[in-house]
Structures are given as structure tokens and as C-alpha cells.
């Protein structure tokens, strides 16, 4: 038996109807595996923010989830425009979202802060013009 479950998803850019479906799938899988509801919720919140960011800013990308006995590792990788100043992007309230996206209720500038708040580890690697990779590690509570 494999030591963990590996899941992969293609996230479609600018599609606000399907947005969140990768996270929905990971949530269902964690729930089915008997992970505690509060841990599932933390994973879902942080992953959704990452998924939405790829929909809004990066013309989509690829999401993976590796589920171990004691943790889940989520990656969200895109080939979008990248983040010039990660520190600024992490600042609550800072957003580069368009008015159209804001009218849907996104673009509050809370996406990255939420990821940091709900994941135990949040690593953002980005190169302007090349893309961004976000790695989120959530450890399951005892």
C-alpha cells in the first residue's frame, strides 16, 4: 500500500463557476478518510484561497494534494505573471484584482493572509513573468 494519497487537478483560469472544485474534491477525500472536521476546514480554507488566486490572477494552473497519516501537503503552481513583492501581497487588504473580480466578492486582499493563518506552513515562491508556486502544509491535530 502506498504511504500516502496523491491527487492532482487542473484549475481553469477565469472560470468562476468551476472555481473551488479542486478544493471541494480534496475536502471530500479528507472527510472520507476520517480526518477531523476542524482540520478539514483549515485545509479547505487555505487551499480555496490558493485555487481562487490561480483563477483570478494566473490564468489557472495545477493543484496537487498529498495526504499522509499526519498531514496534507497542497501545492498550487501556475505559469502566470508572478508576484513582484511577496511581502506587499501578504499585507491584509492589498489586492491587484480588477473591479469585475471585486464585484463577485473577491479581491478583498485577504487570500494570502488566510492561507498563512490556516495552514501550518505556507511557502510562496514566485518569479515575475515565470509563475508562482504555493506550498501549504497542514498538520492534523492529535
Amino acid at each position: 500500500m502506498a504511504d500516502h494519497v496523491h491527487l492532482e487537478y487542473v484549475v481553469e483560469g477565469d472560470n468562476f463557476v468551476s472555481a473551488g472544485s479542486a478544493t471541494e474534491s480534496v475536502k471530500a477525500c479528507l472527510k472520507g478518510m476520517g480526518v477531523k472536521p476542524e482540520d478539514v476546514r483549515r485545509v479547505a480554507i487555505s487551499m480555496y484561497e490558493g485555487e481562487i488566486n490561480m483563477v483570478i490572477h494566473a490564468n489557472g494552473g495545477k493543484a496537487t494534494a498529498d495526504i499522509y497519516m499526519d498531514k496534507v501537503v497542497i501545492t498550487l503552481a501556475d505559469t502566470g505573471k508572478g508576484i513582484a513583492d511577496i511581502e506587499l501581497a501578504m499585507k491584509p487588504g492589498y489586492s491587484t484584482a480588477t473591479d469585475d473580480v471585486r464585484s463577485l466578492g473577491f479581491g478583498a486582499g485577504m487570500g494570502l493572509p488566510n492561507m498563512k493563518k490556516y495552514a501550518d506552513e505556507c511557502l510562496i515562491e514566485s518569479t515575475v513573468g515565470v509563475g508562482t508556486k504555493v506550498t501549504l502544509v497542514t498538520k492534523f491535530s492529535a
Binding site: R41, Y48, G105
Partner: peptide, 14 residues
């Protein structure tokens, strides 16, 4: 707010 994304948010946040 009434667009489709409220469903994902409500579901994921329980």
C-alpha cells in the same frame, strides 16, 4: 452576495 461562489465558500467553511 448572490453569485455561485457563495456555495463553495459556505461548503468549504462549513
Amino acid at each position: 452576495m448572490t453569485n455561485i461562489n457563495i456555495c463553495a465558500v459556505a461548503h468549504l467553511a462549513d
